[in-house]
Write a protein that binds this DNA or RNA. Structure first.
Lengths: 333, 333
DNA sequence: TTGAAAGCGCTAACAA
DNA sequence: TTGTTAGCGCTTTCAA
């Protein structure tokens, strides 16, 4: 491996001069500079970033921790895409650690990134408790930004989406369409997104809706199964709200398979505004979640832009499409 | 920041002893060990991975380069999910660099990972030429594995999917269903996947099919538009093959919007076996692409498992569903 | 404008 | 079994 010293020797100068040339400090004579560049080209030298970061005590990496359970959702691509985009926009690189499926593993992933001396870390937590997160934030030498879920402390380290408000928006829309019996398909717990959405459903739904809930795990298949369970249940309903689009899509298939029409017999809505929702038939009414904005805030907070963290949670916007219609007079059962 | 020296002082031993304790060399007296652990706990010491990797000259990171144009495809989640999975399985971490949208940027991303001293690098190239890739592979001190596309050299650094064979499988199936006029929606070039699939289509389609091709860019929307173009074209066809599932799904919507039935009037097929295909109506006939296997081979090659690189490309398997039916007697126009 | 030397935090001979 | 010492490849004072 060719080091800076090799370049220096080859150019007939000292290590420090090479370093200066590379770091653009304009204190080097042009002719020497040229010599150094020539030597660099000749030797094929690549600066060692580990050494560089160790010496400067700073790095240009931003870490992201996500539990791989999230990988399949439409969330994931959008999240990573935007994370990479905003990192690069601020001359940083995204580095990525799998939080796997337990609090320990999530904490481990964060720890790895801390020890890699990332400039900052974004965590999309799934298992780690508030208390643990708070501890991590406070002990970390670099900014650790908690995404998606609301923390009760350290708002400066927290960019969250107000999923409760999102749930309300969706429920209000369904109610405004005349639906009074609304079923809910939940995402896999623990999940702050699901928890808040479910709470909104519960608060807005008619009091006797307790039986109108089925457990999903965010996947299309679970939405399919959950919908079957609900259809076969004793309680009737005219609308079905799923905690994400994937499950809503699975649910629509289940309804169709049972000969029910969407939205004439049953209306269906989801969350997240997955692209496919537009192309599905019927096209899916959903809530567009401001992922891009969330990531942007997090990254800019890390790179220390003079930017205010949003005081309140970000809220999504309703996307009205065809899968929700007015309540039919008679429900399916 | 608390360093190893701090721990050593706190425990009343030397730095090397602390190091030994940490690295599990069982040459340290139990009592001393205990002392060190106590000091570590007290000080809250976290080893600096940069320093460690600089000193040991090795790292446990595996890099992945993807162009962000790929982020939206169903490919992406699967790719990253499996990459993370197999990395962790072999006690490595995935680190991720955006190839953005030019050869220069891809090469830059690879360079970054090289300079971060990754143990190995996986590249899903989009823009970089064979010659450039070859150069990179040969010059890199660590294994650089080229994914997806076939290289003419260095099969030991190349895990590819035989997309031409995949295209043939799909075309053979369509032909076996009696289709003779088969249209094709292409992915965005440059792309080895599209190139090979398109070639297979061209070789298998009837010679007068030249007009039956429309340009897409992998997105659902482009599939939608491309299908409209084809429908409005002068040439009739009974089947439509799209270079990926997303475009096939967009195309199906276009057909429906024009009052055409799938598969009765027109059959549609795609590639990649995106999950949603199963839930769409009609469910989508597609080719399952062995992404997981590809990544596994790449990772195991990097971590130096006694494993043979597959001699030939991996091939996908046909997934027959509802979007393809027998050729109808009369096409749409 | 340049070079020498110390130091970033760690590992790994070598000696003791 | 432990401590001393010399690196890993880079940056950055401090002198020259």
């Amino acid at each position: 491996m060719v080091t800076m010293l090799d370049v220096a020797r080859c150019a007939g100068v000292s290590k420090s001069t090479v370093s200066r040339v590379l770091n653009g400090k304009n204190v080097v004579r042009e002719e020497v500079k040229a010599l150094v560049y020539k030597a660099i080209a000749e030797t094929g030298y690549r600066p060692n970033l580990l050494a560089q970061q160790l010496a400067t005590q700073k790095s240009s990496m931003i870490g992201l921790v996500i539990t791989n359970e999230v990988y399949n959702g439409p969330f994931f691509s959008t999240l990573v895409y935007n994370a990479a985009k905003f990192c690069e926009q601020h001359d940083h690189r995204l580095i990525f650690a799998d939080g796997k499926h337990s609090a320990d593993e999530e904490i481990n992933a964060i720890d790895f990134l801390v020890r890699m001396k990332c400039a900052g870390i974004m965590v999309y937590p799934r298992h780690t408790s508030q208390a643990q997160l708070e501890k991590i934030i406070n002990e970390s030498p670099v900014p650790v930004m908690i995404l998606n879920q609301q923390l009760t402390v350290r708002p400066d380290r927290n960019i969250f989406i107000d999923h409760y408000r999102g749930g309300e928006i969706m429920m209000d829309y369904l109610l405004s369409q005349g639906h009074s019996r609304i079923a809910y398909i939940s995402g896999k717990m623990p999940s702050p997104s699901n928890q808040a959405r479910q709470q909104a459903w519960q608060d807005k739904a008619s009091p006797d809706s307790a039986a109108l809930i089925a457990q999903g795990d965010w996947s299309m298949e679970s939405g399919y199964q959950a919908a079957l369970t609900l259809i076969d249940g004793a309680e009737s309903f005219t609308a079905l709200l799923a905690a994400n689009d994937d499950m809503a899509l699975g649910a629509i298939k289940a309804l169709k398979d049972r000969g029910l029409r969407v939205p004439q017999d049953i209306s269906v809505a989801g969350f997240d505004n997955a692209k496919i929702g537009h192309y599905f038939s019927p096209s899916l009414t959903t809530l567009d979640t401001p992922i891009e904005q969330m990531i942007q805030c997090a990254v800019e907070q890390i790179v220390n832009l003079p930017l205010d963290t949003p005081e309140h949670g970000l809220t999504g916007t309703l996307v009205v499409r065809d899968s929700v219609g007015p309540a039919s007079v008679s429900g399916p059962n």
